[in-house]
């Protein structure tokens, strides 16, 4: 990563007002995904407060999050919990700490970004193809691979199916934007190994 610019950890989380959290749990109480999380949003914020980024980054919960922002909206202390989870996802992705069970979510996000990087806009067919191949082909999970195939004719009938997606004219620019942004990594102190 030499030569890349680094945002410091204090900058990263202080903007989300993490220090203000008093652990009331209102974020977790309102979270539509809380029941499915291994660590609740308030626990993730607590881990960040303690500097235990590694433990937080490896949580499945951060990939269960649907980014509905209910947590931040209702926080009595204006902690931006949704932003904390964004940052944890980015850090986990950059440091390769995404739990295997949530690999599929990451693969989709990656496929999505790759797709934009190539086309400038989302090309749905290509996105689904790439994602499914990466997510399921390796395991020969044909069922999952073909799960959405019956949708194709239905979409076609509704003129919602496009073999060729749209692409922007200046695709070189889009790639340059991606490259510049990709060179900025989050820098979390990872001395702690939980």
């Amino acid at each position: 990563m030499s030569g890349n610019s680094h945002a410091t950890e204090s900058d990263v989380f202080s903007e989300a007002n993490v220090a203000a959290c008093y652990q009331c749990g209102k974020c977790s109480a309102g979270c539509p995904m809380a029941e499915h999380m291994d660590l609740l949003p308030n626990q993730l914020v607590r881990l960040v407060q303690m500097g235990r980024f590694d433990r937080a980054m490896r949580a499945e919960a951060i990939w269960k999050c649907v980014s509905c922002v209910t947590c931040s909206t209702r926080c009595p202390k204006s902690v931006d919990c949704a932003a904390v989870l964004d940052l944890l996802r980015q850090a986990a992705f950059e440091q390769g700490k995404v739990p295997p069970s949530r690999r599929r979510t990451l693969l989709f996000q990656q496929a999505f970004l790759d797709n934009i990087r190539r086309n400038g806009r989302v090309c749905e067919l290509e996105l689904i193809g790439v994602f499914k191949t990466k997510a399921f082909a390796k395991d020969w999970d044909l069922l999952k691979l073909m799960e959405d195939a019956p949708l194709a004719p239905k979409l076609m009938r509704r003129r919602k199916f496009h073999f060729r997606g749209e692409r922007v004219k200046d695709r070189g620019l889009v790639k340059r934007i991606f490259d510049r942004c990709n060179s900025i990594k989050l820098d979390l102190a990872t001395s702690e190994n939980s």
């Binding site: 009331c24 977790s28 109480a29 309102g30 308030n42």
Partner: peptide, 18 residues
């Protein structure tokens, strides 16, 4: 824990807390 939301369903108050 704090309560995040209260709604009303069939005469009951649904209290979502933690």
């Amino acid at each position: 824990g704090r309560v995040s939301k209260i709604t009303q369903e069939n005469g009951k108050l649904i209290v979502r807390g933690v």
